[in-house]
């Protein structure tokens, strides 16, 4: 464990908590893409199947349980409890265009052709594009509530911090995982235009408005 990875995990934790607070406090999931949340739930389920077979640390297990529970809980809140506030009309990104290519790629490009490893690889590839429906929805509505933009900033920062973790681990531990690194870079790059808008607008107290 290193400071970059811990900061990344905490940023990820913060993002999920911010989202839950937004939905619970406003009792609405307006502006949130349910499709992205479904993809995140799939990411965690396929990645954390080793929850019971492979103990790494109490921290690792606790975070996996929280990420699994909160992502499934968020899908429940969006599609059942606060279903009436879910914005179907703007959440239209075709997620099959994300699921199929990542599934095929995980069968072709992986570290080991075993069930667990292919599911882990699929989860890594899927996570790198899972935010696209959300970013697409923000571009369609042309704006986002400030709490939603804080959620996106924390979520985008988490994998950016992981890139620093991978640099650290390469130089100090001689460890690197090219699949996680490439996917992590793609994932972080997808947030770049949002990061620009967030830093130039939201941090100045303005609302996140995309140029129409």
């Amino acid at each position: 464990m290193n400071i970059f990875r811990l900061a990344g995990d905490l940023s990820h934790l913060a993002a999920i908590i911010i989202l839950l607070i937004k939905i619970w406090k406003t009792r609405s999931c307006a502006g949130i893409s349910g499709r992205s949340q479904v993809l995140f739930a799939i990411v965690f389920i396929t990645r954390y199947l080793d929850l019971f077979t492979n103990f790494i640390s109490a921290y690792n297990t606790a975070m996996k349980v929280f990420f699994l529970g909160s992502s499934i809980g968020t899908v429940y809140l969006m599609y059942l409890k606060f279903k009436a506030t879910y914005d179907h009309n703007h959440d239209t990104f075709r997620i099959e265009f994300l699921l199929l290519p990542t599934a095929l790629l995980s069968l072709v490009l992986n570290h080991e052709f075993s069930v667990m490893e292919i599911l882990w690889t699929f989860s890594i590839y899927l996570e790198s594009v899972a935010i696209l429906p959300q970013l697409f929805m923000v571009s369609k509505t042309g704006e986002a509530e400030s709490i939603t933009s804080h959620y996106l900033f924390a979520l985008g920062s988490y994998r950016g911090l992981y890139i620093l973790n991978w640099i650290y681990r390469y130089y100090f531990e001689g460890f690197y995982d090219i699949i996680a690194i490439v996917a992590g870079c793609v994932q972080t790059i997808l947030y770049c235009d949002f990061f620009y808008l967030y830093i130039t607008k939201v941090l100045k107290g303005k609302k996140l408005q995309l140029p129409a």
């Binding site: 995990d9 080793d50 077979t53 492979n54 975070m63 996996k64 990420f67 075993s114």
Partner: peptide, 10 residues
Amino acid sequence: NIFGDSHDEL
């Protein structure tokens, strides 16, 4: 472990 080598990152 029994399910192939482990990934220690979240």
